[in-house]
């Protein structure tokens, strides 16, 4: 069973981003970038399925500029077998990424695609669902547990009310939530080995899909900052403030 794992290069989760002074976007120059944490979890899950003898090959795929090769090398260092970069310098929105991934999936014929549930930059939470729809496959989003059994998967999903378990026929799309696993650190020898693993670059134009942005992102603004309040001396003062100043209790 082949597994396809889409990975995105995003601003590192520890960075507090700043809006550009002309409000056209977010300042990215000189900012630390990393693999989207949810995609890292997806790579880990796929690699574990390979180590368990369930998956035969793990293919990482990223859509974007040439620098996304770094992100793919991270996935390779974690244990993916090979990587594909769908290269374009154009702005990509989730619908376009879904179409590019569909084209890749049609070439590679994976039985399972594991996406992150959301990317921590645009927080869209869309790509996996879009890809599943375009392929006509089932989807199990926000997965915290995944069991593969021959032609089906059983996925436990984190939903608002608790947990839900679904069974789906393969091929299918799963999106990973935080508690699916704890990703490994890539070791130095594996980072070295990853440099020699195959990484194919496909120009996005060769896939023949419409990737023009459908949405225009205009003004970017920082939300009004909360002003820091006061430190209270003790519990009695806290109760006093809540009752008589804030009047919330």
């Amino acid at each position: 069973m082949k597994i396809l794992v889409p990975v995105k290069r995003v601003v590192d989760y520890n960075v507090k981003v700043r809006v550009k002074s002309d409000h056209s976007g977010v300042e990215l120059s000189g900012v630390k970038m990393a693999i989207n944490p949810f995609d890292e979890i997806s790579v880990e899950e796929a690699v574990r399925l390979k180590e368990a003898g369930i998956a035969s090959e793990v293919i990482a795929v990223s859509c974007g500029a040439a620098v996304c090769q770094e992100t793919l090398r991270t996935a390779l260092a974690m244990g993916a077998d090979r990587a594909i970069l769908v290269e374009t310098s154009a702005e990509l929105q989730p619908l376009a990424v879904g179409k590019l991934l569909k084209a890749v999936a049609e070439r590679e014929q994976p039985q399972l695609v594991i996406c992150g549930k959301q990317a921590i930059d645009d927080d869209a939470n869309q790509t996996g669902q879009i890809l599943a729809a375009l392929m006509g496959w089932g989807q199990a989003t926000f997965a915290s547990k995944l069991l593969v059994d021959k032609g089906t998967i059983r996925v436990t999903r984190e939903v608002d009310g608790g947990l839900e378990t679904l069974e789906l026929p393969l091929p299918a799309v799963v999106t990973s939530d935080l508690r699916l696993n704890e990703p490994r650190y890539a070791t130095l020898p594996n980072i070295m080995k990853a440099k020699k693993k195959p990484l194919d670059v496909i120009p996005a134009a060769d896939l023949g899909v419409d990737i023009a942005p459908r949405l225009r992102h205009l003004q970017h603004a920082e939300p009004p900052a909360r002003k820091a309040g006061v430190k209270v001396a003790d519990v009695a003062e806290l109760i006093e403030k809540l009752r008589h100043d804030a009047k919330v209790i």
Partner: peptide, 19 residues
């Protein structure tokens, strides 16, 4: 909600529109 987040992008893709 988790319901809407699961559904809306799938619906949008079936309609070929960006959610």
């Amino acid at each position: 909600s988790s319901f809407g987040k699961n559904l809306a992008p799938r619906l949008a893709a079936l309609l070929d529109v960006a959610p």
